[in-house]
Design a protein around this nucleic acid. Sequence first.
DNA 1: AGTCTCTAGAGGTCAGACCACAGTATACAC
DNA 2: GTGTATACTGTGGTCTGACCTCTAGAGACT
Lengths: 241, 241
Amino acid sequence: MQVVNHVRTMIVNGTLKPGDQIPPERDFARQLNISRATLRTGIGYLAALGVMKIKHGVGTFVADGPPDFGRDSLTFIGALHGFQSWQMFEARILLETALAALAAERGKEEHHAALAEEVAEMFAMVDKPNEYLVHDVVFHRIIAQASGNPILAAIMETVVSSMYDKRRKTVEWATDLRESAEMHREIYRAVRARKPQDARKMMERHLRMAQAAQGMEKPAGKRLSNAAEPTSVAHALSTTC
Amino acid sequence: MQVVNHVRTMIVNGTLKPGDQIPPERDFARQLNISRATLRTGIGYLAALGVMKIKHGVGTFVADGPPDFGRDSLTFIGALHGFQSWQMFEARILLETALAALAAERGKEEHHAALAEEVAEMFAMVDKPNEYLVHDVVFHRIIAQASGNPILAAIMETVVSSMYDKRRKTVEWATDLRESAEMHREIYRAVRARKPQDARKMMERHLRMAQAAQGMEKPAGKRLSNAAEPTSVAHALSTTC
DNA sequence: AGTCTCTAGAGGTCAGACCACAGTATACAC
DNA sequence: GTGTATACTGTGGTCTGACCTCTAGAGACT
């Protein structure tokens, strides 16, 4: 479509930067000599990709903040292809352990400071699960930034965000947020000490524990014993993400 | 939106499976009691996510084939955030080495057979660069399938597909497709022998060589010496993907 | 000073018409 | 009978212009 190419050009030119607002639909459509309906199709496409954020009654903006592949994309193709929870964790562990190792190699002082800040906040929020989770997410996001590879960071963002809803419920049950905070602290120390292998190992331990915690949240009796054989897409979905 | 939720439900129910055709826009809109324009917005959203494929004059279908995150998504957010070529390769190497190791652990006979087939084809096409590339891509796709983790496979598919255009040009210059074929053969043998560490190493060697080949495609003099300091988004784009 | 209401401007939806493309059926010429 | 040209059918693509809903700020009121 004409719209996406035009926007792509504006982005490459630097005419459009993250956070910028694009002209109102009516004006923009007139500029491009297309109808508003067509413009909206293109904008919708870009919004789906996560390139633009639409706010009803306010305007349309170029996405800022940590890049990702769109909030819904993984959820949807996961439903379509029957992605399983353990596969999700396998992917996350692979990505985040690599990210932690890279962060230990390449992280700068600003990242170290930000990580320390978040660890402190986590210890402070040890009995407020929901607020704890926020800092947990930010911690991992800073690690991703410190890795110096925004592509891997974007992929991680996508994977993690699709697990967020489930985590928000799980974290209520979690009893040992203190232990979780301790592990984050150890990851931080390994990154600060520039010990990639330690950072990788700590991150892996942390995530495997998180995985175990998540697996327990439902009563054991509810789970089918023959889970290896997905009887239907519906069942696959219930154990997805 | 109402549309995406309805389609999600149909996918979960099994009413819609990969490859299926959805009703014509006019009928579908009437079924959902919404206007055609609104329906199209939702369909466009799903198409952007890679969940549906629209064919003008033919119909709209649920995506089949190897899952990915949409053809344009990585390209776009790459342009927006100035992703660099070496970051692309770093991500690819991380993903594909892990995939190769997993394939060596979990691959089944059917995968081994398919890999052998592709290796044979590659040796046969050693002086037809474009056809060689096709089998190259398929080989890596089979490795991804054999890994048993469709999520990682989908991520790899997205990353690799965004590099495809550049590779098609690069492969013309490549003189040693025979060497490339040899490396694929060694990867195959490691996978078949169930030696994850060997598979990982072979894959890494292969990709680093590919990276080196791609880096040489442009005359050396053209490159700015001060590339570490991205002067503009436009410049960043020129070295992207 | 604080609260409330109104309003301008943004995106969201609608209806119905017409355009463009792909595949198939049909008619025609050879 | 075969092959080509043509018309038709059904699909997605675009247009117009009207109306609805939401958000945030300006202004009036208390």
